[in-house]
Design a protein around this nucleic acid. Sequence first.
DNA 1: TCATCCAGTTAACAACTGTTCTCCGTAATT
DNA 2: AATTACGGAGAACAGTTGTTAACTGGATGA
Lengths: 208, 208
Amino acid sequence: MSHTLGIRQAQKQKTRQSLLDAALGLLEGQSLSSLGLREVTRAVGVAPTAFYRHFRSIADLGVALVEEALGSLHPMIRTTVSTADNGNQRITRAIELIARHVEGYPAHVRFIARERHGGVEPVREAIRDQLARFGEEVKAELAKDPESAGWNDDDLLMLANLYVDQMLITASLFLETLQAPEEERERVAQVAERQMRLISIGRRHWLD
Amino acid sequence: MSHTLGIRQAQKQKTRQSLLDAALGLLEGQSLSSLGLREVTRAVGVAPTAFYRHFRSIADLGVALVEEALGSLHPMIRTTVSTADNGNQRITRAIELIARHVEGYPAHVRFIARERHGGVEPVREAIRDQLARFGEEVKAELAKDPESAGWNDDDLLMLANLYVDQMLITASLFLETLQAPEEERERVAQVAERQMRLISIGRRHWLD
DNA sequence: TCATCCAGTTAACAACTGTTCTCCGTAATT
DNA sequence: AATTACGGAGAACAGTTGTTAACTGGATGA
């Protein structure tokens, strides 16, 4: 099935990936709407015109970055939410998993946090779509939980989105503590954990 | 005490405000890090060099915008949180107040949402500081509430920040529905209300 | 009234931007 | 072996950017 691509297509994908990587790097200190096409190609070491062989515009590249940053995250979300642990341990593991992800892919996390409300509409839309998918997936996992007995669909989605937003906030906080001492990171983790726990308590008593 | 400023100072403040207003307008379709100094002065109808009479840089102007957008909001937060209504009505009123504010100052809200994680560090820092103040203020109001009996300071601040983040998320969602039909706005309001309610339920059972 | 101050102007600078068109060399196809 | 397809290079374009220096004219204060 996996048709080995020719030398040509392989090289093309390699340059394309270099452009994405370079852009992500340059975006640590600025927003996408100020990123220049020439800036990116210069960082890669390629002619400005080569850019057009891969992307129609910077906005187009941004959409591709959204896919790269969030597209591969869906299975992780699924397994995280549906871990078999009991309540509090599940939350602890989720927070830890977020911390791990932020450490492993800080540039991706920064990009999403920054461009979610950023100045480039197509990118905002792409992020919105992905996050909506996350919401639906979390909802689906929550629905399997015995605690969700008696909940209607609207409320389940409401809760799922609350969790998703909370994850993003937590990730963004971890990002800010990447350069900070370990103790600061631990403090953030504990606050995030208690916030998640409070939400889960609210969930448990929702139907009272 | 209110010393009437001379013609000169008055005119200066007037141009300064024009620069702020023009910048805010231009920022509807881009991020601060891509906003040009000349772009702003052109929109005002003033020479590019005049900019330096008021701000050292665009980042400097951004910090001033943060002050304008959030500085005057502290009393509002205070009175909102400490309304005398009972639980659910208080939440309904808070959501409505947020909706009203987004309608009245959409550009300010958009600016804060966009630049909170944006590409200009001094601006991020200014927003972070203001939001931390909000957190402390909400905490102070929560502390007065009889429901907070037995809560320690850490947990109170944790809850306060949860509320603040939730307010920002809600504001940002309202912003996206500004052009949408009324029913959409109503749907967002109801979801936000239920999320706030769930958090408040978690609060009520936190000490169990 | 006269000297000072200062918000805003004008002109010029080197450096940068996105985009077009033309070309090259090589992988892919026949 | 001959032809086509195509990723990338090169040069040039008109327009933009931030920042500098020197200047103007009216409000300010002695």
